[in-house]
Design a protein around this nucleic acid. Sequence first.
RNA 1: GGCGACGUAGCCAAGUGGUAAGGCAGGGGUCUGCAAAACCCUGAUCGCCGGUUCGAAUCCGGCCGUCGCCUCCA
Length: 470
Amino acid sequence: MTLSLYNTLTRRREPFETLEEGRVRMYVCGPTVYADAHIGHAMSAIVFDMIRRYLEYQGYEVTYVTNFTDVDDKIIIRAQETGQDPFELAQYFTDKYLRHLSDLNIKPADSYPRVTSEISNIIRAIEELGETDYAYAVDGSVYFRVGRNDDYGKLSRRRQEDALSGTRVEGEEGKENYADFALWKGAKMGEPSWESPWGAGRPGWHIECSVMCLHHLGESIDIHGGGNDLIFPHHENEIAQSESLTGKPFARYWIHNGMLQLSGEKMSKSIGNLVTIDSFLHQYSADALRMLIFSGHYRKPVSYSDESIGAAVRSTARLRGGLRPATGTVAVGEEVNGLREVSESARSGFRIAMDDDFNTSSALSHLFELVRAINTARAAGVSGPFFQAAQDTLRELAGVLGLSLTETADSDGDVLAAKPFIDLLVSVRTELRQKKEWAMADKVREGLAAHSVQLEDTANGTTWRIEEAA
RNA sequence: GGCGACGUAGCCAAGUGGUAAGGCAGGGGUCUGCAAAACCCUGAUCGCCGGUUCGAAUCCGGCCGUCGCCUCCA
């Protein structure tokens, strides 16, 4: 039973072998912080959080680094538009993104490097590239000489001739070749800049990640991840820079997630077809987003719609339902043994699915089978340590996917405040039911339902829970 | 135009050679004062055409369609 994963670099599924026994170094490209993040960014963060959690579950010690691009054209433009300081703007959206990561139940990274805190390392790297002729300066800017790398294009499967044959991009006159890209951009008036051997300027987009990787994880890493829209040019250029700098393979496995789509198109800031993380979490739970993403494969596109998120909400509730307490007293017998068997097969089935390039959809099917077994056992009156163990297995495996399976009521302050009033209404209704005043009792139930409070009458009394809108 | 991915029941989706997991929705039942939850039963020959094979959703070729990247992008 070994993990195999799809490597974009080889376009094949490969057995996972780490550079260092028992340890995984992984780097995931983070966002450019110039606006509110949307659930497409969340998807990427969630996918790599799942991968990280599964690796840890398999016993690896994972060092996880993800960055913030906090100096960039778009940040500068946005700051100029709003009259803000670009650094403050970037800081604001960085802080906000970190809060989102926490709200989405994403485990904290071991470090979150930023471009602005790596400037001296970046300058040193560019100097080194210049010394070995991989870089050349023109009018205060420095470009990477793509033609000097024979294997340029190996990640995106682009031939250099194709990349070299376009027309020149405006504003980058003086480049030797169209495909050459900026390592250092000379500053224009009013732009944030740092002193360098080439004059005032700032880093180009790609060099930051190479340098941060090198600095925080080393010359060669195990996993480099990001959205598949970063394959070209960003990751291709990272490889070119890093390998030219160190002479060693940059990353062993390249993992790319598919795009979240809204109305048939990739969700993106530039198209404007987006749902921000803020507005999503205002309406739905973090678990629901994970369920939507994990119902398919991480490399495939995911369609976001009212219908797809609604189905995800309801299937999340189903998983959660498996954690409802036992009601009976049967601790041994046929039902108990049956539950144990399903628990074990769910656990092994889950691992087999996850080992197969993180097949979360198949892994989830084993969780649903476990839920059904738990529900059946509960209905048969099963209780005691084996019932607990089955629920622990469900919690454990769901936890590997980063699903918390907690009720809204556990964390929502509004619900906690309403709890005494809801309990009071429920107890009044219980008296009404004892007197068989069904019409009034139903009125209370319907009234609460209108506020998302779902009542359930069981043999042991009435329970209630907050129903997530679907 | 170049490179790549995908097309499985009403919807989402797993499954890479031996006659199709799972979830949502729907229908029928059990339980319930009625609901809710739960449980049971219920649906597809896998975009189209052709080929390889004893046998293909799974391999090959062609066609149609959708999506992504081709220097803003998770």
